[in-house]
Design a binder for these strands. Structure first.
Lengths: 339, 339
DNA sequence: ATGAAAGCGCTAACAA
DNA sequence: TTGTTAGCGCTTTCAT
């Protein structure tokens, strides 16, 4: 391993000068020395020792990314494609800034804090953690924190999320336009993101119909096999009672389309189905899913961007971003008006 | 931040003693002191400074995980569910051993090496990297390396993979049993994993039929929209020419089922389709996919296990592991014998 | 069983 | 513009 000291000796200068060149403090070093040292740096394939940097400078160049798994095996193991795209996007943005991503999966905030302190992370991004957990990390940890898709009572923690309420609203508005009156919103919980979407559903329905009598929220099991049993017991009667089923994710919607078909109920002829996310599942499903589009890659990018604004101490940072959503009309919702 | 020095002062001992307690060198410290110090350690919520450890001890407790993206947008963005499950499994195993996972996405071996050296990683796991890239990292990097799903000309680099050849063999054997004679194997490349699977196809076919005249390998585009165009142009005629289509992944198989249906070709009535992986897509597809099962979580676990065997310098480590596969019969392959 | 002291590679305050 | 120096928190030899 080649050290700054070695470079300094070869160049006949002091370590400080080399350090200055490395960090681009060109105003402190003469043109010539810069060139000479930079040449040596590449020739010798100098690589910094992060341990020493962490110790001496107090800067680790590490961004910790904490991923919770609130619902355990939610979506079955492979429904996590969502977080995978997000993680790729986040890592790519972090790396671009010459930082590194230390990734840990845990729902436990204490574990998260310890993780962050141990590595002296310069910032933290969390996803899939509860409101409380994020708050605890924010309070006890000293690193800047940006959460993704979390809602807070009082503003205060930086978050990048979605216009979830708007998504629920937009889809419901569309379903109503298509003539559907009995609408069920199905999700595996009623907090945070899904709660907002449900609020959007109610809002749109009430605006158009004057009340929320025709709409209901059905909580389905997050665990795959439990959900399967739930559907075996209730799906037929749910389908009978509703005009349209609006799911909180495309994955759930695609799965339901298949389960309905197994029951001899066809989408959209017998019942309409809508999803959320505009994921691959929506395009692969037949009928192709009408859904709400969101840009996951951008979510990751924006989270990293906001985190670095926080790290750089920029003023006037918006605490909470709500990325836009849009309606994607495909084939899973029947337009009753055209009949 | 509380340091060893602080603990030492409070306990009235030297830093050395505290360090010994932390590292479980109990033979060097008296029973009493151990207890007193351990109590202090938890009370004060002592957290080690990794920077100092890296610098002083030379051990980073970091495992680098390198993920390549050889095919760019292969599978569309969200088909990466596979690597997501793997990454979770790997991280969990690493963390259990009190190590940490630094994750970086890059197809470039040079970048990977620099990454590893910068952080002085104690070991490296790679997935989705080319044979050459892994070899380069092995040669130039000094950290132990375990690759996943890579094949090498000469043995030498530790790898955890699958019995891919066996998988191709098993499925083809089954397709033949079902009476299919014209079989196409479809994948987006012909190296490594997919090449082995194809070899298995040929082997099984030749064993049963005496030659490989009825079997062919079709390379489909890895990029989603290109694949779409490819199918628009050729899928109908491919379907006409074959009895069964055996895809290198469930994702591709599920997608093809849908595209075929769009063309009015029904699975399995008009043509049989088989997948590989036994992923969520296989269960969600209708008809449910007949496929080859593999245990991705175990793949991750085994890779980490092997890496630590390497790190610990254990003797007699198998260089290359091939995890078992099994045939999962569902509904996408028609049994012609029963008609 | 315990402690003193040197040093890992780097940064940053201060001097020159 | 360049150099000197004193740590950062920890491990590790070597004394005691």
């Amino acid at each position: 391993m080649i050290r700054i000291k070695d470079i300094a000796k070869q160049a006949g200068v002091s370590p400080t000068t080399v350090s200055n060149v490395i960090h681009g403090n060109y105003n402190k070093v003469s043109e010539k020395t810069v060139q000479r040292i930079e040449k040596l740096l590449t020739e010798t394939e100098y690589v910094p020792s992060m341990g020493a940097m962490m110790l001496a400078g107090g800067s680790s160049r590490i961004i910790g990314v904490l991923v919770g798994e609130p619902e355990g095996e939610k979506y079955g193991r492979e429904g996590y494609a969502f977080s995978n795209v997000l993680i790729r996007s986040i890592e790519s943005e972090i790396y671009k800034r010459n930082y590194y991503m230390l990734l840990h999966f845990t729902p436990d905030p204490e574990e998260g804090i310890q993780f962050a302190v141990t590595w002296n992370v310069e910032g933290l991004i969390t996803l899939g953690l509860h409101t409380k957990s994020n708050t605890m990390i924010q309070v006890k940890g000293k690193a800047p924190l940006v959460s993704i898709d979390t809602y807070y009572e009082k503003q205060g923690i930086a978050n990048v999320g979605l216009d979830d309420l708007g998504g629920g609203y937009l889809m419901t508005e569309y379903l109503l336009e298509c003539g559907h009156r009995k609408i069920a919103f199905l999700s595996d919980n009623d907090v945070g993101v899904d709660h907002e979407r449900w609020k959007g559903v109610c809002l749109a329905y009430e605006k158009r119909m004057g009340d929320t009598a025709g709409v209901r929220h059905i909580i389905i099991p997050g665990e795959r096999t439990k959900r399967k049993h739930f559907y075996q017991e209730y799906l037929a009667q749910i389908a009978k009672a509703e005009d349209a089923l609006f799911f909180a994710s495309d994955y759930y919607a695609a799965e339901a389309v298949v389960r309905l078909r197994d029951l001899g109920i066809y989408v959209p002829e017998d019942i309409s189905v809508a999803g959320f996310d505009d994921s691959e599942a929506a395009r692969l499903c037949r009928p192709r899913l009408t859904t709400i589009h969101q840009d996951i890659v951008r979510k990751g990018k924006d989270a990293v961007k906001k985190l670095f604004q926080l790290i750089d101490g920029e003023p006037n940072i918006s605490v909470s971003d709500q990325l836009p959503i849009s309606l994607v009309v495909r084939d899973s919702v029947k337009n009753m008006q055209n009949i």
